[in-house]
Nucleic acid binder design. Sequence first.
DNA 1: TTTGGTTTTAAGGTTGGTTTAAGTTAACTC
DNA 2: GAGTTAACTTAAACCAACCTTAAAACCAAA
Lengths: 226, 226
Amino acid sequence: MRILLVEDDMALTSKLKPSLQQAGYAVELASNGIDAEFLGNEEAFDAVVLDLGLPGKPGLDVLKSWRSHGNSTPVLILTARDSWHERVDGLKAGADDYLGKPFHTEELLARLQAVLRRHYGKADNRLMAAGLELDPDTLVVVDQSGREHSLTGIEFRLLRYLMLNQGQVISKTRLSEHVYEEEQLKDSNVIEVYINRLRQLLGRDCIHTHRGQGYRLGSLSNPSNR
Amino acid sequence: MRILLVEDDMALTSKLKPSLQQAGYAVELASNGIDAEFLGNEEAFDAVVLDLGLPGKPGLDVLKSWRSHGNSTPVLILTARDSWHERVDGLKAGADDYLGKPFHTEELLARLQAVLRRHYGKADNRLMAAGLELDPDTLVVVDQSGREHSLTGIEFRLLRYLMLNQGQVISKTRLSEHVYEEEQLKDSNVIEVYINRLRQLLGRDCIHTHRGQGYRLGSLSNPSNR
DNA sequence: TTTGGTTTTAAGGTTGGTTTAAGTTAACTC
DNA sequence: GAGTTAACTTAAACCAACCTTAAAACCAAA
C-alpha cells in the first residue's frame, strides 16, 4: 500500500511517517500544495492523507484538481478540530473521510484503514496481539479463554496502545499521553487504576509490571538475545 | 445492470462512480448534454442518473429528446435541493424519480434500486437486522414481536443507518451526519430524543448505549458481562 | 388561517465512566 | 530487617453524558 502524506508541519510529519511505515505502508511526502498536486496527478497512490492548511496552494484546491483529473484515490483530510464547514467543504470536494486535529496516531491509522477498506472492499480491522482480539467497531475484546468483554473509552484506548506495542515496556507517561487528547497527569493514579481493571477482565498475568519503567503486554519482544 | 451517469461535476463523478461500481453496476459516463443525448439514444442502459445542471444542452431537453425517441429507460434526476419546479418539470418530462443535492451516496443507491425495481418489477429491498425488518418504500418497520410501526423521516434514516451498521458502535456525530444532508448539530440533543423514540417503539433493549462512544443496534455474539 | 403532524429546543433528573483519595502490599536499598 | 518508594486495590465522589418529558417551533396541507 502506497500512501501520499501531504503535511507541512515537520513535527507532525516526523511523527506520522514512521508510524505509517511501521503499519506497513510505503510513504511518500509532500510539504506544500504545488508538490502535492503534481505528485497526486503523476503517480499512483492507494490513498492520500491531506492536511488542508497548506502553503503554496490550498488543500481543497489540490483535492479538487485531482478529482477533476479523474483521480478517485481515497483521500483522508486533516482539519482543525472544530472547523465544521471545512469538513463539509472537504467532503463536497470529494474527500472520503476527515479527522480533526489534534488526533492520536492510532486514530489516523484506524481511519485510514477504514477508508481503504470502504474503497477497495477490504477485510475487517480487528487487532490481534498476545492472545487477545480487539474490535474497534464494537469496542469488544475477546480474551484467551474466548470470553467477550465490552470496554469503555479509556479501557479501549489503553488496551489498544498496549496491543499495538505488544512485548514492549511502555511508561505510564506515554500511556496517558495516548489515552488522553491533551496530556495532563500531574500526580494521578488513573493508569494504575485502569491497568488493574484490565487485569481483572483479562487475567492477572496478561499485563506485566516493570517497576519504575512501565507496563508490558505479552511476552518480551526480543527473546533471542540480551 | 448498466447505468449511464450524466454529471459534469468531476468531484461528484469521481465519488459516485466507484460507489455505483461497488454496488454492482457497470457505469458509463457523460459529462455534457450532447454526449448524454447521443449515448442515451444509441446504447441500451438499464437506468440513467441525470444531473439537470449540464453544459452543452439542458438536462431536461436531453430527457425530453430520449422520451420522444421512444426510449423509456428509467431516469433518476439530480436537482438543486430546493428547486421545486425543476423537479416538477423533470417528472413531467418523464423522469421516474428525483434526488435533491447534496445527498448521501447511500440515498442515491437506494433510490436507484427503487426506480429499477418499480420499472422492472424486481425483488423488494427490505432491510433486515437485529430481528427487525425495515421497508424503505413504506417507511414501516416490523419489530421482534411482529408489530408494525410506521416511521417519520428522521426515525427512518436513523434506524436505517443503525441497521446497516448493526452490531457496531456509532457515534452521535456520525449518526447526525447521516440523518441530515448538511451536518449541523452544535449542542442539540435531537439524536438522543430520537433514540428514545425508537426505543419506545422497538423495545428498550434494542439499542444499547456506550457512554461517550455512541450507540449500537443488536446484541454481541457472546454476551458475557456488563 | 387553521390544523395535524414532525422536528427541535429546553429543562431537570439520572447514571455510570472517570477521577480522587486513602490504606495496603510488594519491591528495592542499605 | 528496617526504611523507603512504587505500585496495587478499593471505594466513594464527581460531573459530563445521557434520558425523559413536555412544550415550542416549524411546515405542509386543507
